[in-house]
Design a protein around this nucleic acid. Structure first.
Length: 422
RNA sequence: CGGGAAAUAGUUCAAUUUGGUAGAGCACUACAUUUGGGAUGUAGGAGUUGCAGGUUCAAAUCCUGUUUUCCCGACCA
């Protein structure tokens, strides 16, 4: 990408939000735009980053045999009546944005159990069709009573939601366990340290729900982490009466020895059982020709939260002052930023074309009338993991790459450069 | 929904205490110089002070109402 086309604003790093520095920088750049509390527009960097994370999620889910689909964001009231959730979501919970017009009443998708169940039941008519898991990635809408931390808790956000259909409770458990493994792979690939955590729902109904908590000092939750068993316990659980029995069940013996972390929930999986199948009156036919309810599960990952988390966990400071951030190389939409002085303009253009031809996404800082220093500082503001300067020291052969996280500099030839970037 | 803070130029803020022509830094525009870690000079543009009432000769400033934003809590498939 040519930086001259991105039209980022010049920013002052002296008054950056202390808590959410990365997202505030994107706001100041114009790469995030707030329309009102909890409703944002995303610039190129956020969008590309989202695509990258999305592709990782799609890749892992597809490998696990899940089927990508898309459900409507505009959902008719009648399907919510079918599961008896319209009142819950509009009155008691008051979480759904609703529309009322001459065609009828609608809700903007806060989630999609109804859509998924109807969609699945229409084609999963026989036990021979099961199991099946459908997933989609798209915007969700929720009337959060209090927005918080930019894209950590907005009112519209991008989420992956998956819905599984199984014949029996045992099969549902298998699918649920499989999704657990898929989630761990996803979070590993996006570079986030995750703690699979027992949530409070789990206490009430046995092991039917789990959260995937990421360690960050900006978190909303407190999680006790048992490193040996790789399991976390939401601190809320300790408030419950049957805590001892429950902890025993988890294999946690010494609660005092567990380290407490501030965390944010990036994913949440649930065993739904036959709740939707039965309430919506949708069944399959089993081996004996009998009507049976689907055992379902639902699985969610917040894409926006993943991205916010990655950005805020990779802030770069210099002399205790915020400088910007540095994205993990694997997920950065642009791997390197090319900076040059007037004498090396042609060389820089050549390098840019060469990398593009090799399908390596980089940023060429082709803006005019800026000092090298200005340009280098903007690398940090955009989060680009590596930078290369074609300045006075450039000899036409050896390229000096700098890692923005470690400040390590290496000198390489063009072929070596392409190999490192691949 | 409870508690707290705030709203003035694109942005971060000052001027409000004590009513009297609305300012500054950064950003923006033009020209020149500068160009390896957030330059310099000269000139310039930019505002119905969130909105609505009220008091006053006069309101950013005082009073009343209202809207919005942020933070803490509660809430959270």
């Amino acid at each position: 990408m040519r930086l001259s086309k991105l039209n980022i604003k010049k920013i002052n790093l002296n008054d950056v939000d202390e808590n959410y520095s990365g997202q505030d920088i994107l706001m100041k750049l114009g790469e995030l735009y707030q329309y009102e509390s909890g409703i944002y527009g995303y610039g190129n960097l956020w969008t590309k980053l989202e695509r990258t994370v999305e592709n990782i999620i799609i890749d892992e889910l597809d490998k696990a045999g899940c089927i990508q689909v898309e459900f409507p964001k505009l959902q008719p009231k009648k399907i919510w009546d079918q599961s008896n959730r319209w009142e819950t979501y509009t009155k008691e919970g008051d979480i759904m944005f609703t529309l009322d017009n001459n065609l009828g009443q609608y809700g903007l998708a806060p989630t999609a159990e109804e859509c998924a169940t109807l969609f699945g039941a229409n084609r999963l008519t026989s036990y021979k069709n099961l199991p099946a898991t459908y997933y989609q990635i798209g915007e969700k809408f929720r009337k959060e009573i209090r927005t918080r931390g930019y894209l950590f808790r907005p009112r519209t956000f991008v989420m992956m939601d998956a819905y599984s259909f199984d014949k029996t409770e045992e099969d549902m458990q298998k699918t649920y366990d499989l999704m657990h493994e898929v989630y761990l792979n996803i979070f590993k690939r996006v570079g986030i340290k995750i703690i699979p955590t027992v949530s409070d729902n789990g206490v009430i109904g046995g092991k039917v729900a789990e959260e995937f908590q990421a360690i960050t000092n900006l978190g909303e939750d407190k999680t006790l982490y048992d490193e040996k068993n790789n399991i976390g316990i939401n601190k809320e659980v300790l408030e419950f009466e049957n805590r001892d029995e429950y902890l025993k069940q988890l294999g946690v013996t010494d609660i005092e020895s567990l380290k407490e972390y501030s965390t944010v929930e990036l994913g949440n999986n649930f065993q739904l059982g036959t709740k939707y199948s039965e309430s919506m009156d949708l069944y399959f036919t089993d081996e004996n020709g009998e009507k049976k309810p689907y055992y379902m599960g639902c699985y969610g990952i917040g894409l926006g939260r993943i991205i916010a988390c990655i950005i805020e966990n990779n802030i770069i400071k210099y002399k205790n002052k915020i400088k910007g951030f540095s994205l993990p190389y694997e997920i950065a939409p642009y791997k390197m930023q090319i900076i040059y002085n007037e004498n090396n303009k042609e060389e820089a253009e050549k390098l840019y074309d060469h990398l593009m031809k090799n399908n390596i996404k980089v940023i060429l800082d082709d803006r005019e009338n800026l000092s090298i220093g200005n340009r280098i500082n903007d690398v940090y503001v955009l989060g680009t993991p590596k930078l290369i300067v074609l300045g006075n020291k450039f000899d036409g052969k050896n390229y000096e790459i700098e890692d923005t996280k470690t400040n390590e500099k290496t000198s390489v030839t063009i072929d070596e450069l392409i190999n490192t970037l691949k």
